[in-house]
């Protein structure tokens, strides 16, 4: 199955979404990311028991922080997919990309470009 997902999406592989820390999410926006999708296994299917549940809580905290600095908490989202759901992966990633496009670029990225 060779499916196409938006080419502007960069994938960072991790052994488990439980490895994703709040600082990783916040820093990615400071470095100019327009949006971040954390894609973990289905709830209840984590090989490390709670990795994806923990990741979701961290994503929610990152959303609160982004909202509090008026960057838009919706720029970071958590999705739970099984590894066999490639079409669904493409669907959620494409929808997220569209959503971020509607929100516009990360203003930090614009500020960084101006400063450079």
């Amino acid at each position: 199955m060779r499916l196409q997902y938006p080419s502007n999406v960069k994938i960072i592989k991790l052994p488990c979404t439980g490895k994703v820390d709040l600082i990783h999410l916040v820093k990615s926006f400071e470095k100019g990311a327009d949006g971040v999708c954390v894609v973990g296994c289905l709830e209840g299917a984590c090989q490390f028991t709670k990795g994806n549940i923990r990741a979701r809580k961290r994503v929610e905290e990152a959303q609160r922080i982004l909202d509090s600095i008026k960057l838009g908490g919706e720029r970071v989202q958590m999705f739970n997919l099984s590894s066999s759901e490639a079409p669904l992966f493409v669907k959620v990633i494409s929808e997220m990309t569209e959503k971020i496009k509607e929100m516009g670029p990360n203003p930090i990225k614009t500020a960084l470009k101006k400063a450079a």
Partner: peptide, 19 residues
Amino acid sequence: KKEVAVLASALRMHFMNQG
């Protein structure tokens, strides 16, 4: 250290956003 890093990042973004 971690909370300092998160707060610093959030503050940097806030001020950058404000120009």
